[in-house]
Structure formats: C-alpha cells, structure tokens
Amino acid sequence: MEEERHAVTLVVNGRAVTEEVEPRLLLSHFLRDNLGLTGTHVGCDTSQCGVCTVWVDGLPVKSCTVLTVQADGSEITTVEELTHDGVPHVVQQAFQREHGLQCGFCTPGALMLSAWHVDHYPGASDAEIREALDGLICRCTGYENIVRAVKRAQALQEEAPAAMAGQAREEASS
C-alpha cells in the first residue's frame, strides 16, 4: 500500500507546526505521536469518552473526531497550555482543590471541557454542569467532585477574572 501524505500547518499551543501526515491520521494521534504532546489521552475508538478533548479554534472538540488534514490551518490548544506564565488555570486549581480527579486519565479532557464551560457559562447550575459533562466518561470520581470543581472554578474566575482566567478568555475573544 503506497502511503499518501499531505502537508498540514497548524498552530499548536501558539507554535506553528508543519508536517506531512497520512490522510487517516487522527488529530489525537498527531498531537501525541507526532508532537509528543502526551497530555492529551485516548480512551476509546468511538468518540464517546471525551478524554481526548482539546480546543480547536477556541471550541472544545474530541480530537479523535477530527482528521489532522481537516485541522489544517486551525489553532489547537491542549492541556499543556492551560498553565499560562506559570499560573495554573482556574480549572486546574479547582480540580485539585475539590479532588476532581483520581487516576488522572480523563482529566485533560475534563479540564479542557470545563475551562471552556466556565468561561462561557460562568453561572451554570449543578444540573447544567452535569448536562455539559455528558461528553465525558470518568470511571473514578462518580462526577460529584468534577461538578464541585467546575463550581469552584466559576467562583475563582469571578474573584479574579483578569489574572486567573488565562487562555480561555483570550481564545474566546480571538
């Protein structure tokens, strides 16, 4: 089988990257295998679990649902970029404070989803947060402390919006 390859250029965590990739290469595997950004995890093969969630052009997207060639020209943000200038994002702080993670495997996806949600729905109720988490499967926490972490992140963001909100706000406004 001849390997067909296409050149793609993406901006990943603020850096332009150009690579030649197979058309079938998923964005999730591109991030992990080609760029070594192993913070993004892969938990299934049917786009159900959401642990591979990253931001594509500012929107939370399961990176296993996107072919790398489809993402050509996009801006990608991964969990590695959530901490900005040494300051953890409010969701990173909140997940630790509320024990919103155990094994940590779904956590990168949970963080990327939550960070976006906190930024766009800062007053979401518990029930709304639970609905928003529908694209995530976590086997450890029973979701209880993830919900509490999102609530706490809302509070942290309200306390210090400019300094603490970090990347989410920039991405949303760009």
Binding site: R32, L37, T38, G39, T40, H41, V42, T78, V79, E80, L82, T83, P88, Q92, F95, Q96, L101, G104, F105, T107, P108, L111
Partner: peptide, 15 residues
C-alpha cells in the same frame, strides 16, 4: 499527584 496530572505531565504507559 495532582500537580503533574492537571498539567498533562503524567507518565502513562502509552506515553
């Protein structure tokens, strides 16, 4: 352990 896990700096076998 959360310090590395929330930063995407865990070291899982597939990494």
């Amino acid at each position: 352990e959360d310090v590395r896990l929330v930063a995407g700096q865990g070291q899982y076998t597939d990494d």
